[in-house]
Amino acid sequence: MLLAAGAGTVTGTELDEQLDVLTVADFSTPWLTIVWNDPVNLMAYVERVFRRYFGFPPDEAHRLMMLVHTEGRAVVASGPREEMERHVEAMHEFGLQATVARDDA
């Protein structure tokens, strides 16, 4: 995705500068994976996905699932943007409602 942002439209120097900016944005700014409550998914299923996909211990998987259930959402991961996008894609494959967000808390 870095390459898709400006490749072919700028000079080498400009590209270097852009890449620097993008690198900072993509790797220094923490991004979040947020899972949202929805009316369909079963508690046990969400808990299993958290445990099996993210590798959370059962207690932590349960705590995060309950956060989703009671607060409407939970942050389940943070880190580089592309990693969060992989997580969100996986959550969508599991049928969970998930989004990527910049961590500006």
Binding site: N37, D38, P39, V40, N41, L42, M43, A44, V46, E47, R48, P58, A61, H62, M65, M66, V68, H69
Partner: peptide
């Protein structure tokens, strides 16, 4: 068994998650 102790009956429509 996940969550089954504190939540629910999967057949209860009012508490699907």
């Amino acid at each position: 068994p996940a969550a089954s102790s504190d939540s629910a009956d999967p057949e209860a429509p009012e508490d699907p998650r």
